[in-house]
Design a protein around this nucleic acid. Structure first.
Lengths: 345, 345
DNA sequence: TTGAAAGCGATACCAG
DNA sequence: CTGGTATCGCTTTCAA
C-alpha cells in the first residue's frame, strides 16, 4: 500500500505539498500539482483515513441506529440518510438494534470507538445520562423519541398525532362512526400519539369511546391479524379499522378476507406508513404516508449542521423538527353501510 | 476525550501496561490490572480505533455492497452479515449501489479509504481488473456473480438452477404443462440460470418451448404485473406462471385478480425468494426460498476466513460455495384444470 | 510556494 | 512483569 511519502518521492516534492494537493489547497504551483496527481495515479494511491482521522479527530462517518431493518420502513429511512451523508462526503454505519436496549447501547459504544462524528438514534432507548455522555463525544440527533427531552437536543419527529387525525377524518367523511383502532406497543411516543389522536378524535366528534374497539398490537402483521379477528367476532362490529401501521393493516385485511368479507364494501381498512407493500396488496391500502426517506435525509442534515456548530464552538440550542404526513387514498376505504350510519344518534 | 496516556497516569502505570490490560494479555499483575480497569471506568475511557487501526493496519470493519436496499431480499442478507460480523468484533458499512456500476465503484473506493479489512460485493458489476486491485488491498468475497471468475476468488452463489428446477417440478406434479416464465433482467447470472433451468426443464420433460410463454421483467412488481397481463391475454393462456422473484409474482397475482380470475383455481403462481410479503399477500405465495440471512452470514464467515489466511500469509485457493434453496408450499399453487392436461399429447 | 518536523493515540518491541 | 520508545500515515504549523 503506497503512502503519501511514496507519492512525494515519486513526484519529487515534499510530503506537505502532497497533502496540500490532496486537500485542494490553492497554495500549490500548477507544475507540482500535476506532478503529484500523476504520481497518485501511477501508484494508485489511496489515502489512509485512519491516519487522517487520528490527526483531524474526525472520521467523516456517522452512525445510524434503527430498531428493525426487517420493517420496510427503516431501509427507506436508511437510504435517505445514506444519500444525504454521501453527498457531504460522509459514510454511515447502519446499526440494527432489534428494539433491544442492550444491543443499542453496545452499538453506541462501537460507534464511539470508531470515532464517528455523529450518531442518529431512531427510537432511542438509552437513558438521558447516556445521551449526555454521547453528546460529549460527538454529535447526536434523536428521531422519534419517547417522552420529552431537554430543548438542547436535536430532535426530529413525524406528526403522528396530526397524521392519525387526518386519517380518522377521512374515515369519518366516508360515513364511518364505528371505527376500531389497532395500536402499536405503547412504549413508544409515536404509538401513544396515534392512540391519543384516536381518543381525541372521538371526543371532538362526540363519538362514544368503546374500549373494546381499541386493540393493542405490536407492529408486526400477525398482531394486526389477531386483533382484527377479535374485532370481527364482535356482534356490533366496526365498519372501519384504523391500524397504527401498514403491516398490521395488511394482517387485518388478511383476517377479513379469511372471513369472506369484502374490503371496502363490508369493512374499510386504513394503515399508517405507506410502505411499498401498501400499494401492492389487494385491495391496495389507503394509508397515512410517513416521509421515510425525507426523515433519514433530514436527520443527517440536522446532524451535519450540529457538527458545524460544534466545530465552530457555538452552542446553538437544539432544533426540533416535526415532519408532516399525507393521506394516500387507495382502495381499502369506502363508504360505510347506511345501517351503521345512525349508530351514534 | 481521555487517552491511554491519561489512563496510565491515573492508574500510576505505564502506557504499555495499559495497552496490555486492554488487549487482555496475561502478562500483567492482578494489582496493576485492577488499577487500570478502575482508571478506565473512572475516566470513561474509550479506545481510539483510528489510532489502533493506523498501527495494526486493520480497522475491524467490513464493507457490504448491495444492489438495492428497497428490495426486501437485501435487508435480510444485510442482517445476516451484520450479525456474523458483530459476533467476530467487526462492524459493517452497508453500501447501497442502486444497481449502478459507477456508484458501486465509488463505494469501493470509499471503503478502501476507510481501510476496511474486507469487502463483500453482492451482484458485483466491477471489472476483473478492479476486483484484482481490491484484492491487493483487502479481502474480497463475491456473492451472486455474473459469469465465470478465476478459481482463486471466494464466491458464494445460491443454487438458482436447482431451485428453479424444483419449483417447476412442483408445478409439473400439479399437472401444469403450460407454464409461463417471467424472467428478471438477463444481465445477471442468477437470472440467466433460472431461465436456463426453465428451458432445460421443458426439454427434459419433452414439453414444447413456446417463446411467447417467456417474458422478461426487471425484478420489480410492476414488470410482473405487465408481463402477466400480456400472458393472460393470450388465447391459449398458461395454467401456471413461474416468476423469477416474489415481487414479480405478486405483481402477476395483482394482474390476475384484476381480471377476476381465481388463484390457484384458474391459474397457479409461483415466486422466488420467499420475502416476508410472500406469506402476507393473499393467496399466500408458493415460492422457492432463498437462504437470505444465511447468505449474508456465510459471506462474512468466508471473508473472515480469508482474512485469516491473508494474515498468515497463506494463499489458500478460493472457496466456492453454493447455498441450497427450499420450496415453500403455500396457497398460490393448485392442480391444473383437466382441460389443459392433454395439451401436450 | 515549499520543505522539515512535531504530533494525533495506540501497539509492540526490547531492555531492565 | 513493567516501562520507555519507535512507529503507523497523515495534517499542520513554521521557517526558509
Amino acid at each position: 500500500m503506497p503512502t503519501m511519502k511514496d507519492v512525494a518521492r515519486e513526484a519529487g516534492v515534499s510530503l506537505g505539498t502532497v497533502s496540500n494537493v490532496l486537500n485542494g489547497l490553492p497554495t500549490v504551483s500548477n507544475e507540482n500539482r500535476e506532478k503529484v496527481e500523476e504520481a497518485v495515479r501511477k501508484l494508485k494511491f489511496i489515502p489512509n483515513t485512519a491516519a487522517r482521522s487520528l490527526k483531524t479527530n474526525s472520521s467523516k462517518s456517522l452512525g445510524l441506529s434503527i430498531p428493525n431493518i426487517g420493517n420496510p420502513f427503516y431501509p427507506e429511512l436508511a437510504r435517505g440518510a445514506e444519500d444525504a451523508a454521501q453527498k457531504a462526503g460522509y459514510s454511515v454505519f447502519l446499526c440494527n438494534n432489534d428494539r433491544n436496549a442492550e444491543k443499542e447501547k453496545n452499538y453506541v459504544r462501537v460507534l464511539l470507538e470508531k470515532n464517528v462524528d455523529g450518531i442518529i438514534l431512531v427510537k432511542p432507548q438509552v437513558s438521558m445520562e447516556e445521551m449526555d455522555e454521547i453528546r460529549e463525544k460527538c454529535g447526536l440527533v434523536l428521531v422519534d423519541i419517547d417522552g420529552e427531552v431537554h430543548e438542547s437536543y436535536d430532535v426530529i419527529n413525524v406528526d403522528d398525532f396530526g397524521g392519525t387525525m387526518k386519517g380518522l377524518e377521512l374515515l369519518y367523511e366516508y360515513g364511518h362512526i364505528r371505527i376500531a383502532f389497532i395500536s402499536g406497543s405503547l412504549e413508544s411516543r409515536s404509538s401513544r400519539s396515534r392512540l391519543e389522536a384516536y381518543i381525541r378524535f372521538r371526543e371532538e366528534k362526540s363519538l362514544p369511546v368503546d374500549d373494546r374497539f381499541i386493540k393493542r398490537g405490536s407492529y408486526d402483521w400477525y398482531s394486526g391479524y389477531t386483533c382484527a379477528t377479535e374485532l370481527l367476532r364482535m356482534v356490533n362490529r366496526p365498519t372501519a379499522i384504523f391500524a397504527s401501521n401498514d403491516l398490521m393493516a395488511i394482517g387485518a385485511m388478511k383476517a377479513i378476507r379469511e372471513r369472506r368479507m369484502d374490503i371496502p364494501h363490508d369493512i374499510s381498512v386504513m394503515g399508517y406508513d405507506d410502505i411499498d407493500m401498501a400499494a401492492l396488496c389487494s385491495p391496495q391500502l389507503t394509508t397515512v404516508r410517513q416521509p421515510k426517506y425525507e426523515l433519514g435525509q433530514a436527520s443527517v442534515e440536522m446532524l451535519l449542521k450540529r457538527l458545524c456548530f460544534r466545530k465552530a464552538g457555538v452552542n446553538e440550542k437544539g432544533e426540533h423538527l416535526v415532519l408532516p404526513t399525507d393521506i394516500i387514498f387507495r382502495e381499502s376505504v369506502g363508504y360505510a353501510e347506511r345501517e351503521n350510519g345512525g349508530e351514534n344518534s
